[in-house]
Write a protein that binds this DNA or RNA. Sequence first.
DNA 1: ATTAGCACTCTACAGAGCAGAGTGCTAACA
DNA 2: TGTTAGCACTCTGCTCTGTAGAGTGCTAAT
Lengths: 342, 342
Amino acid sequence: MLDKRKRSILQAIVDDYISTAEPIGSRTIARKHDLGVSPATIRNEMADLELLGYIEQLHTSSGRIPSAKGYRFYVDSLLAPTQMSDKEIALIKNWYQEKTRHVEEVFQETAKILSKITSNISLVLVPQVTQCAFKYLKFLPFDDCRAILVVVTDTGFVENKVIDIPTGLSFNDLQRIAEHINKRLSGLSFDNIELSILREIQNDMLINVDLFETAIGILKQALVVEKNERLYLGGTTQLLSQPEFKNIEKVKSFLDMLEEEHLLANILQNQKNDGVIVTIGDENKYSGIQDCSMVQATYRIDGQVVGTVAVLGPTRMDYGKVMSVLEFMHNHLGEVLRKYKV
Amino acid sequence: MLDKRKRSILQAIVDDYISTAEPIGSRTIARKHDLGVSPATIRNEMADLELLGYIEQLHTSSGRIPSAKGYRFYVDSLLAPTQMSDKEIALIKNWYQEKTRHVEEVFQETAKILSKITSNISLVLVPQVTQCAFKYLKFLPFDDCRAILVVVTDTGFVENKVIDIPTGLSFNDLQRIAEHINKRLSGLSFDNIELSILREIQNDMLINVDLFETAIGILKQALVVEKNERLYLGGTTQLLSQPEFKNIEKVKSFLDMLEEEHLLANILQNQKNDGVIVTIGDENKYSGIQDCSMVQATYRIDGQVVGTVAVLGPTRMDYGKVMSVLEFMHNHLGEVLRKYKV
DNA sequence: ATTAGCACTCTACAGAGCAGAGTGCTAACA
DNA sequence: TGTTAGCACTCTGCTCTGTAGAGTGCTAAT
């Protein structure tokens, strides 16, 4: 365990580096932070800290910057848990009120809010429909050869698709099929709708196999659609403001990486604990972001975890601020979704 | 009118500059293009071309680059109209087939295709629902206090929203309201649905003013939703590959500008002619893109222009390629939309 | 244990010098 | 008269050099 002075010095280094992005020297610390000791003493302490692996040097005569281990210690032991100010909270609530009418907009605006406040990239993982329960589906008339299929979940997600009516089927047939399916599937989560159940329904109905396949195909298609586009990204342009992305090549490869949406979605999905989690540098499993840090938080509807929000940025990020914002989202995003959507 | 040799030289300059992004000197032209004259002669011709305003010099001893006027002449008189190769066309068609299931995806993938092929930013302006005709609306049950409103247009757009059932109204009341509205509005374009008609309906129905206001409010809300998000952007990261955006500040201000979506949407909407249009440099009205060029093209469904696609990039863009791709979209996007959507 | 002093190291920046590419002008040539 | 070779000139971009500034580690004194 570090003694008090070492902790103060480490804290000074991390704080300063986060705000200036410049390596910190012993004189700077002595000047800015009143530790009551001379730069020389600080130098000795810094040499110790470097030996212990908490800070690093870019070259022999440069100041020190925090290592991943240093950030980790800072986040775990030095950072006083802060809350967002009432003013900021009011601002966010107002933002939601003004800009969101649709569910999708809540996710999108959440991504915008997060990136705006933290000046970093934000990710919002949308609840997967497969975790919701099927409520009913319904066919609406469109014209002689087409109909509109509407699928409704218990959480109020509504998905629709214009479909061709299979030849040989009347609109009434479709309605009968819908009724049957609804009777059997209503209340089941999409994850639990297995082919076996669908087969049963088919037997019950004694209808032509082909027609049934078509109907199920349509249902599946609607589900596929819902699965897509379930990750909202925000603030990719914020990158350009960060000094670590002065190099345009770096920006490019990073943005290309971001387009591999499913990878990011996987990372977010794998969060086990409920709450705010910080992953620093090479603690990240996914190599594309090993020189970045990610702070993520789950959010819940009716007490159940349905999705994750996250902020991704250079390891040199304002952990205090980012964590407080995500803490807020962790506690309140469910409420917002509830209020605006369903 | 320029004589043949001047035209060849101008063409050489534009072609080379488009592919290398470097100013072109007289020797380079003599070497690469077999014009049968010495660099000195070319120098004289270039001096003339500069005087006439077709080319420019960055500093006294640099090579020449095309001016806006030069590009204009190139596009109008030097560029042989090219068509996309069969291979490319097959590639695009295949892309649509694999990646698009939903209408929205057609727009999104169109943006991706355009930016990928042209290495520039692409814009896809989605048909506004207000140009379509209202077909019908329908309420679907959700729970005791909420219902789902579905609005259907004649082109197959379906919009839905979960709404609170106004207190005092039963689900049956909603259905009666829907029937009435459908009877009166079906077939009208959204642009033509004026408040006056809505008032008439209200009188017909002899229902409580408040309730009616609520119903109309809901309808309007659905329309507002449809109006949003009608511009798809693609390939913003392509910018970073262009040498004119080496400067990171430039990239940043440009991306910020792009976020003002409505401005871009306006530019695209104002296209009067049906077909492919090229706007070079300061021919652009909107100052944010006056050092860029934009190539835009309308697309049609059933012969009627419903939207615009465009490619935006530095004036130094491959006009031949961009124009051929947009020509293709002009002719075929309607088909694709028709095939995949309705 | 702390600190002042000192020699040393590394970066960032500015200026000098040079090679390379390009130009305009002039005079010679077909 | 149109074309060309030759030449002096200009501007950029690169490398090299020197210097100021910040920072370090070590040593010896407090």
